[in-house]
């Protein structure tokens, strides 16, 4: 099993606040890994460091053996890492299809090629029927899936998903779980930042737990949820299942 992404001793502080503290983990190709932790644990900061939206204070991020932590987001994307945003950001005046086309222009200048890739991406997240709707007419779960489709159009090797299931009803989340599992079966590596533990249990083969910016546990989900340190971080000291 090959390692696609390696995070080495990554730290990032904002002024005096240390948001991410000496975090290391690696992602294996073709697997779904989840980055979890309570609110304010540094998940999104960690995610932005990998995506190139933030520069680390110290530490390195290696993708396929190449250092990427000094590259701007567009370069990181062109190397094969696509991301979604926690707050969904459709290009409002454009149709769903046009939104999904943008990512394809990172590897082609041919509009019809981009359009067929965009259809393919929408198809894989179950949005093809709404391709001609305006992006701002979509429901929240559909918008979350559009974010994923936009990212898929860049033909990524690694997909970074930021709280793609936050704010969804269980049935809606289950639909997304299916989509993610199918993508992983197709060979895509996924890093999932998620707050909802139950979903992570279902979908991830490996879990990294952050608390106050530091990694406190890593392993298969069933082991991690039994870890007293993890329970303590989520539920407070003194609580044991």
């Amino acid at each position: 099993m090959t390692t696609l992404l390696e995070v080495e001793n990554l730290s990032r502080s904002f002024g005096g606040l240390v948001a991410v503290k000496d975090v290391s983990f690696s992602l294996r190709a073709g697997r779904i890994t989840a980055l979890i932790g309570p609110n304010g644990a540094g998940k999104t900061t960690c995610f932005n460091l990998v995506a190139g939206a933030l520069k680390p204070t110290s530490g390195r991020v290696l993708f396929e053996g190449r250092q990427i932590d000094n590259s701007p987001p567009e370069t990181v994307c062109r190397m094969g890492i696509a991301r979604t945003f926690q707050i969904v950001r459709p290009m409002r005046e454009m149709s769903v299809l046009e939104n999904a086309m943008i990512g394809a222009f990172s590897w082609t200048r041919n509009v019809s090629e981009a359009r067929s890739k965009a259809y393919e991406s929408l198809e894989s997240v179950g949005l093809a029927a709404k391709a001609h709707a305006r992006a701002d007419q979509l429901t929240l779960p559909d918008r979350k899936m559009l974010e994923t489709a936009k990212a898929l159009s860049t033909r990524p090797k690694l997909l970074l998903l930021d709280e793609v299931m936050a704010g969804l009803r269980p049935t809606e989340a289950a639909g997304i779980v299916d989509v993610l599992q199918r993508l992983a079966e197709g060979g895509l590596t996924i890093l999932l930042v998620e707050h909802v533990m139950r979903i992570v249990m279902e979908v991830a083969s490996r879990v990294v737990v952050l608390h106050h910016g530091a990694k406190i546990a890593e392993g298969p989900p069933e082991e991690v949820v039994a870890d007293p340190k993890v329970l303590e971080s989520y539920l407070g000291a003194g609580f044991h299942a």
Binding site: A51, A53, P72, C77, A82, F85, R89, W107
Partner: peptide
């Protein structure tokens, strides 16, 4: 529409 979203999709803005 959104510069940082475009950059995340590989657009060299």
């Amino acid at each position: 529409d959104d510069e940082s979203a475009a950059r995340a999709l590989g657009v060299r803005t």
